[in-house]
Design a protein around this nucleic acid. Structure first.
Lengths: 213, 213
DNA sequence: ATTTATCTTGACCGTTTGGTCAGGTTAAAA
DNA sequence: TTTTAACCTGACCAAACGGTCAAGATAAAT
């Protein structure tokens, strides 16, 4: 018997596998977030996941396989946030919704954002395909939407890419540079209230900045 | 004789030392920018600097000493840009000048920005003192200036920290995420013209966003 | 009860790591 | 010219690295 109870038909084994994989994935996300792919060590991941190092390699054949799996999970979550950027309805509400979704993602999964940051800073060696296809297609279609809003006179004539980069940068900054923000905030992580206010400030400045308020 | 000629009084030796140190420092900045402190290797630094690995340790006793030196140089350059944020004259011009100075810094020294990003993402293990003293003091004094502008009715009532974080994030994004931007730009680095336009767009959105245009 | 498939892990392997060092070269000082 | 101080580097080392493996433990299937 273990902490995970057996229902029937090998449910116990399946549960053990799931629990171990989750523990290893969570540990890996943290370690990759701190050190990037090259700097991270499987020994440290095993230590945090509280399993022997050999067990990490039992569930994930190589460090690279584990890293790719982490990247997939991160991309899935990013896509979820991206979905909030629809092309119907009111521009201000759409932009607000997307900025808030990205801010919330930075708050809920800060490690994921930091892994992504490492990946891009180093030159997107593992993810350039994903960026040049999935992400680029998504971005280009949003650019079309923004340009339509501009043509329709709904907002200022801003360069859509510059605007999107500003949104990417600012929202992810609250995850990637959380430690710096914490130091400026008298060594205290932003409280839920402070974060909610930051979110509102970001939305307000950007919306007004592009003539949407 | 070597490529570096002797003037007199040990000038040759001094010149050799300077040239080697510069070559090692340039290589180290690049490698630390790619991999962070832990992921970087002295062998790779030596390879890029085109000196034997033992020579790297002759000029810089340890990898950590080399890293600290790089961080010092980065901080010096950041301080230069920070100086453009004066507390006299027109708010719009001051903010514009600072944003442009930070964008130019991202363009001129992208590796430095990426080293800094690694450092903070990992938790500012080497630089928390510098941030909590020099940088925090500078930031807090700028916050006072911005609050004065607000009191004087010169700009909107924006939370100064949120604004500064937005400027940090957006300007540094053009260095740290240059590879991602390059992919979006059809695998071409931003040209000087594109970069100048991006700079102007950032300035325009932020200035208007805080009611300064 | 026995077999089978999965899970577990200490010990180990070849390679890479940061760092050392002895012995050599070069150029400035005496 | 001789001495001295600085520079150079191949060879080396202990520790840490990603990954392997054989032998054992556990639980599902027969």
């Amino acid at each position: 018997m273990s902490a995970v109870k057996s229902g029937q038909n090998g449910a116990h084994k399946a549960a053990i596998r799931q629990e171990n994989e989750e523990q290893i994935l969570a540990a890996a996300e943290l370690v990759f977030a701190d050190y990037g792919f090259k700097g991270a060590t499987t020994a440290r991941i095993a230590e945090i996941a509280k399993v022997p190092k050999a067990n990490v390699h039992y569930y994930f054949s190589t460090k690279e396989a584990l890293y790719r799996r982490i990247m997939e999970d991160i991309c899935d979550h990013w896509l979820e946030a991206a979905m909030t950027f629809e092309n119907s309805s009111d521009p201000a509400e759409i932009l607000r919704g997307y900025i808030e979704a990205k801010m919330d993602l930075s708050r809920a999964r800060p490690h994921g954002s930091r892994v992504w940051a490492h990946e891009i800073i180093r030159g997107a060696k593992f993810s350039s395909d994903y960026i040049s296809t999935t992400v680029k297609n998504w971005l280009d279609s949003r650019v079309v939407v923004i340009n339509r809003w501009i043509t329709e006179g709904k907002m200022d004539q801003v360069e859509p890419y510059s605007l999107m980069y500003m949104i990417f940068a600012t929202t992810q900054h609250y995850a990637d540079f959380a430690r710096q923000i914490e130091i400026f905030n008298n060594d205290q992580p932003l409280s839920d209230t402070q974060f909610a206010e930051a979110k509102e400030n970001v939305v307000r400045i950007i919306l007004k900045g592009v003539g949407l308020s």
